[in-house]
Design a protein around this nucleic acid. Structure first.
Lengths: 152, 152
DNA sequence: TATTGTTATACTCTATAACTATA
DNA sequence: TATAGTTATAGAGTATAACAATA
């Protein structure tokens, strides 16, 4: 029981370590034809996944970081015309961060390159295993978040 | 297909973000009754998992970091008497890093607290799903590492 | 005056580069 | 002079705290 969990945790840790290494990010962004740091890419892909403009605070919450961090990177992305500020439809006085056309393209390429990378890594996997991985990873994600909240 | 992978990647990213947050580490080490930073804990647990003294270079390779990083943290751990340097049995002139008795205890507590945390998070999971998660996570870890190597 | 975001600053983690020691 | 490790330094990523703006 416990032993199984230790193994799961170890394996998870190893995947994280592998993907965290400097060269992995470098290689992926190069393949996507962009020069952006990790947080930049995370924000862009987050906006693409959200599929609508989001406020700074919402982005920060989604990525589980503090807002000053988002502010800084959004400012940089705005300067490069990858995002822009638009009026919040629900609250006329507030702003949301939207992908520009170019930003959406770039985000799409980044996301696709990542998926493709996994696609090749899992090339030999039977469809059933892939489906199970998706199901279990989403379940894990939900339950880990829920558990964390319950501890507050 | 691709869509499934995007979902898997998103879910994975979210789990990582959740566990990476400052307070998570703080809470876990507090529960383990120690005051160590993340890299310290990683090195201790790595040594415990390895179940034998290891050289600096081997630890660095295992954790996928550069050796100066390991050198620094090992020096700190040594000062706190959680690890010690012992002669390498295979190579009399070299040293290996070994857990002291206290180091092994601390490492054990850290590892157990993590496992227990997951244990509660996954409390509702049927045994079959847990077993599948372990199997797929280990497979993922292997294949991701292998894929990375193949690209070099 | 409550909410949201921003500016300024500092800390943690990790890498690179240059050096040392040992055989 | 090759190998393993160390010292010194720099950079990325993120947090905290203090402040500003807006309603």
């Amino acid at each position: 029981m416990d032993e199984d969990l230790n193994r799961t945790v170890s394996a998870f840790r190893k995947v994280v370590a592998t993907l965290k290494r400097g060269k992995t990010h470098e290689r992926l962004t190069e393949a996507a034809g962009v020069r952006l740091d990790r947080p930049d890419v995370e924000i862009l892909v987050h906006l693409l996944d959200a599929d609508e403009p989001r406020r700074i605070g919402a982005i920060a919450e989604g990525l589980q970081v503090e807002s000053p961090h988002v502010t800084r990177h959004v400012a940089a992305l705005e300067q490069r015309a990858l995002v822009e500020r638009v009026r919040d439809p629900d609250d006329g006085r507030a702003w949301r961060i939207a992908l520009t056309e170019e930003g959406a393209e770039v985000a799409g390429r980044c996301r696709q390159v990542t998926s493709q990378w996994f696609e090749s890594a899992l090339a030999d996997w039977p469809a059933a295993d892939r489906a199970e991985l998706t199901r279990l990873m989403e379940k894990l994600s939900d339950d880990v978040s829920a558990h964390l909240k319950s501890l507050r």
